[in-house]
């Protein structure tokens, strides 16, 4: 009896420990999220509903966005730039990832991947300024074009939307390459063999088998690109020459001199809402498990 009782107690203790362990493991992450995301977000939400002058409840910080065409234009610009960057990055990254996964011998893949992500090792700001030097009027590209006689006057490449997109694409192609590469490597060769057995050629196999199966990798990468791109301040600020404003620049403008944190908070929450819509649109492909 005492033995039974003892084993029963230890069994219950083990069961309790078994229940407690996942919570113990997840608590630091939950605490971190609560402290550095949930609380600041709530604070930002309240700030966005407060009048800049005199305090008190107001919705004007939100209404300004819809009333002021230049604020609205910032969102349109952000969406346009983000869409272009995402599409171009996917189109460049997919063949790159395919070559890495399928054409590069296995023993060289690790090195090839490392080389592919090498630009990640440099500072984001330094990389943006480097692009500015490449695209400048006296930069490498213009000097090469004028030197070869292809053009007589330098092109305006720096301080344009093209420059912003170039800087973004350089960064996000690396990110997308990684996610698509990982997806391609997970694919069993038997899919291709089965397709071939059923008479499908390489193009048909790619379009009807490989591409659908790698869609989760593409969508995860595209979603990350969307989120990181639409919220980025540095690249458009350095490369875009302020010839158009994107949402993060508009948010920062409210803070600099006037310290209008309520309006900056409202604009940030609107930006976050757009990201949420993008998430919901991609949600079906963002599941970790695959059927």
């Amino acid at each position: 009896m005492p033995l039974v009782s003892s084993s029963g107690k230890s069994g219950r203790a083990l069961a309790r420990a078994g229940h407690a362990l996942p919570w113990a493991l997840v608590t630091p992450a939950l605490g971190w999220t609560l402290l550095f995301f949930v609380l600041p977000f709530i604070a930002m939400g309240f700030s966005s509903l407060t009048a800049h002058e005199g305090g008190g409840f107001t919705l004007s910080n939100y209404s300004q966005f819809f009333i002021n065409p230049s604020y609205w234009q910032a969102m349109v610009n952000s969406l346009e730039v983000t869409a272009i960057v995402t599409v171009v990055s996917v189109l460049l990254a997919y063949p790159f990832a395919w070559i890495l996964a399928e054409q590069v011998p296995k023993r060289w893949q690790r090195l090839a991947l490392m080389l592919a992500v090498l630009p990640f090792w440099t500072s984001y700001v330094v990389r943006s300024y480097s692009w500015l030097l490449v695209l400048a009027q006296n930069g490498v590209i213009n000097r090469a074009l004028t030197g070869s006689g292809l053009i007589t006057e330098p092109l305006q490449l720096a301080n344009t939307r093209l420059a912003t997109v170039t800087g973004f694409v350089h960064f996000f192609v690396m990110l997308l390459t990684l996610t698509i590469f990982a997806n391609l490597k997970q694919l069993s060769p038997s899919y291709r063999k089965a397709a071939a057995d059923l008479g499908a050629g390489p193009v048909r196999t790619f379009l009807h088998v490989i591409l659908p199966l790698t869609l989760p990798g593409i969508m995860v990468g595209a979603f990350l690109t969307f989120v990181l791109c639409i919220g980025d301040y540095i690249t458009p600020q350095i490369l875009g020459g302020n010839n158009e404003l994107l949402m993060p620049q508009l948010v920062m403008m409210q803070i600099g001199r006037r310290g209008d944190f309520p309006l900056a908070s409202a604009l940030s929450i609107i930006l976050m809402a757009v990201v949420t819509v993008a998430y919901l649109a991609c949600a079906r492909w963002l599941k970790i498990e695959r059927a």
Binding site: L39, F46, S47, L49, T50, G56, F57
Partner: peptide, 21 residues
């Protein structure tokens, strides 16, 4: 402005959040 803010529930909550931060 301090007086008017103290009577406002939104401001009070904001103050607590600021204090927590």
């Amino acid at each position: 402005s301090v007086k008017s803010a103290s009577g406002n529930p939104l401001s009070a909550l904001k103050r607590h959040l600021h204090a927590a931060c």
